Simulated assay, not measured.
Amino acid sequence: MTIRHLRIFIEVADSGKMSIAASKFFISQPTVSQTIKELEEHYGVLLFERLSKKLYITEEGRQLLSYARQVVSQFDNLEEKMLETNHREKIRIGATITVGNCILADIINSFKESNPEVEVCAYVSNTKIIQEKLLKSELDIAIVEGKIKSPDLICLPAVDDYLVLACSKNHPFAKKKKIKLTELSNVSFAMREQGSGTRELFENYISDHGVDIKTVWEGNCPGAIKNAVMQNQYLAVISVRLVEEEIKNGEIYVIQNSECEWDRHFSMVYHKNKFISEAMKNLMGVVKNYKDTDVLQGISTGKLIKG
């Protein structure tokens, strides 16, 4: 079994077709088929089901795929480090949209102060996509607000955060100190897109309490969501960090969950087989030591109650 075997296997698994793998590696389709057969014989397992001329990866195949991605990634890193002169270490950091909008820049700047020789490349998307990129070794580490579901990823709580219900200063809720949970079913919401950790946490909460909400606006841009709240009189559930300026300016009124059920963590995530370099350890230290003041200190807010 060689790195070449694993590269071909990964391409077949990703594309679902041996012909595409053959084209990518400039080899014949029978050669691809023979490579997969050699892997199956080497490990004594079936990697793909072949049904109606289509390939379906097996559970054993998925297990090998997870390890294969890491092995190939580490081999490529080894080649890069050993063959390049004046090599500059690079860390690919992912962040979910909330994290990317409120703390990622500070974290990168703090890290660069003590690690100026390390190049940092950042990628921002929702939790679902960040998880996929970690599993494919397209990212080294990530900071996310959503729930990580893959058992192949290590998730370490790092930075405290919580959601608030946001409305404009002109919304009827802005005149109330207490809002009943059942009142949410009668108003329009601006929501994050599917795959967002913020959305998942809130939807699980309202589902657990038997409340249906009316979603009239969806998007992945926090700025656009804030505009929808202030200009269109929608409600939105959002990280308190993202509305700090608008709260202090009096443009947005926030309603807190009275039982802290929207408290959460931003977590550091990386693959369980990932080699943790000294630079990555330093970055993790910066994240763990990240401090922020309470945005709502001294601010009058409403309370969401279940009554």
Rank of each mutant, 00 (worst) to 15 (best):
H5M: 15
R7D: 14
I8D: 04
E11Y: 14
A13I: 06
I20G: 05
A21Q: 10
A22L: 00
A22W: 00
K24F: 03
F25R: 04
F25V: 04
F25P: 01
S28D: 09
T31G: 08
T31I: 06
V32K: 06
T35N: 14
E40Y: 01
E41Q: 02
E41M: 01
H42W: 02
H42T: 07
G44Q: 00
L46M: 15
L46Y: 12
F48G: 10
S52M: 13
K53C: 13
K53A: 14
K53G: 13
K54V: 06
L55S: 08
L55T: 06
S66C: 06
Y67G: 10
A68Q: 02
A68W: 00
R69W: 11
Q70W: 10
V71D: 12
V71K: 08
Q74W: 07
L83P: 10
L83V: 12
E84R: 14
N86R: 06
H87F: 11
G94Y: 04
G94E: 04
T98K: 10
T98W: 08
C102T: 13
L104P: 00
A105C: 01
D106R: 08
E113V: 08
E117C: 01
E117F: 00
E119F: 06
A122Y: 13
Y123S: 15
N126C: 06
N126E: 09
T127G: 11
T127F: 07
I129P: 12
I130A: 13
K133D: 09
K133E: 10
K133Y: 10
L135V: 02
L135Y: 04
L135I: 03
K136Y: 05
I141K: 00
I143P: 03
L156N: 13
V164I: 03
V164T: 05
V164R: 01
V164D: 03
A166F: 06
C167D: 11
C167A: 05
S168Y: 03
H171D: 10
K175I: 06
K177G: 07
K177C: 04
L181Y: 03
L181N: 02
T182P: 09
N186W: 07
S188M: 05
F189T: 11
G195V: 02
S196G: 12
G197P: 15
E203D: 15
V211D: 05
T215F: 15
W217M: 08
W217Y: 09
W217L: 08
C221S: 12
I225F: 05
I225L: 11
K226W: 04
A228Q: 12
M230I: 02
M230A: 03
Q231E: 11
Q233C: 09
K248V: 04
G250M: 03
G250T: 00
V254P: 02
N257G: 11
C260R: 13
C260V: 11
D263Y: 09
F266G: 13
F266N: 14
S267Q: 07
S267V: 01
M268F: 13
K272L: 14
N273H: 15
N273E: 15
N273M: 15
E278G: 09
M284K: 01
V286E: 04
V287Q: 02
K288N: 11
V295H: 00
Q297H: 15
I299L: 05
I299M: 08
I299Y: 14
S300K: 10
T301G: 04
G302F: 09
L304M: 06
I305H: 04
I305G: 12
G307F: 10
